[in-house]
Simulated assay, not measured.
Amino acid sequence: MAITALDKQTALVIIDLQKGIVGMETVPPAATVVANAIALIQAFRKENLPVVAVNVSFAPDFSDAIRTRNEKGGFAPPAGWDELIPELDLQPSDIRITKRNWSAFYGTALDLHLRRRGITNIVLCGIATSIGVEGTARSAHERAYNVTFASDAMSDSLQSAQEHSLKVIFPRIGEVGTTEEIIRLLQAR
């Protein structure tokens, strides 16, 4: 579904734009995602609306990581892989959430932060579209948030996964549009 509106109380939620993920090969390239995420951050700040930066991380011994048969083990991340990229220029007023699962809602205080601020709509962007973004979107939808997707501010390791989320899943959960369309609606609220 195309974007029709943004609520007065909308927050930007940025998924996993961190050193170890932004450095991966994605479609479209992560540089495009980062540039569009920065444009969204600036627009949200101009409107005095919340910016939420989410990263994924685990305890050094991975005791808090998912342990199912299909989760790959043996992940030995380099130092700093979980640090949010400095290009985001995060401010002390921004909300920072560390997740240990695909969804930024599961086992975190994200819902509490948003509800205390009266947020009814979230704009999602980040990497990977079919994992962290989609997982968070599904959880947001289950919690009755209006969800808006910045289609050109997200990417995935597989083109087919990117397209499936954007064309099949996201239109059932919320509204999909470009960074430019979102900024235009944000300014018109």
Rank of each mutant, 00 (worst) to 15 (best):
M1A: 12
A2C: 07
A2P: 13
A2S: 15
I3F: 06
T4N: 09
A5Q: 15
L12D: 04
I14Y: 00
L17M: 11
L17S: 01
L17Q: 04
Q18M: 10
K19M: 10
K19Q: 15
M24T: 13
M24L: 15
T26E: 09
V27T: 14
V27K: 08
V27C: 10
P28H: 06
P29T: 08
A30Q: 09
V33E: 00
A37K: 00
I38R: 11
I41E: 00
I41G: 00
Q42K: 12
R45L: 01
R45S: 01
K46R: 14
K46I: 02
E47P: 05
N48K: 12
P50M: 07
V51F: 08
V54N: 03
V54H: 00
F58P: 04
A59L: 15
F62A: 04
F62H: 11
F62R: 13
S63I: 12
S63N: 09
D64V: 07
D64R: 01
N70V: 14
N70Y: 15
N70W: 13
K72A: 12
G73P: 10
G73L: 14
P78H: 13
P78L: 12
A79F: 07
I85N: 00
E87C: 06
E87W: 01
L88V: 03
D89I: 04
Q91I: 00
S93N: 13
D94I: 00
I95V: 06
I95W: 01
I95L: 11
T98L: 03
T98K: 03
K99P: 00
K99F: 01
R100I: 04
N101K: 15
F105A: 07
Y106W: 14
Y106I: 08
D111I: 01
L112K: 12
L112I: 15
L114W: 06
L114E: 01
L114H: 01
L114A: 05
R115H: 01
R117L: 14
I119K: 09
I119V: 12
T120D: 09
N121G: 04
L124E: 02
C125I: 02
A128E: 14
A128Y: 15
T129D: 04
I131R: 08
G132F: 08
G135I: 07
G135R: 02
T136C: 03
A137P: 07
S139K: 08
A140T: 02
H141C: 11
E142I: 09
R143Y: 02
F149S: 08
D152W: 07
A153Q: 00
S155G: 15
D156E: 02
L158D: 13
S160F: 10
S160I: 12
A161F: 13
A161M: 12
E163V: 12
S165E: 06
K167G: 15
V168T: 15
V168P: 09
P171M: 03
R172E: 13
G174A: 07
G177M: 06
E181H: 09
E181Y: 07
I183V: 10
R184P: 03
R184F: 11
L185H: 15
Q187I: 09
A188S: 14
A188W: 13
A188I: 05
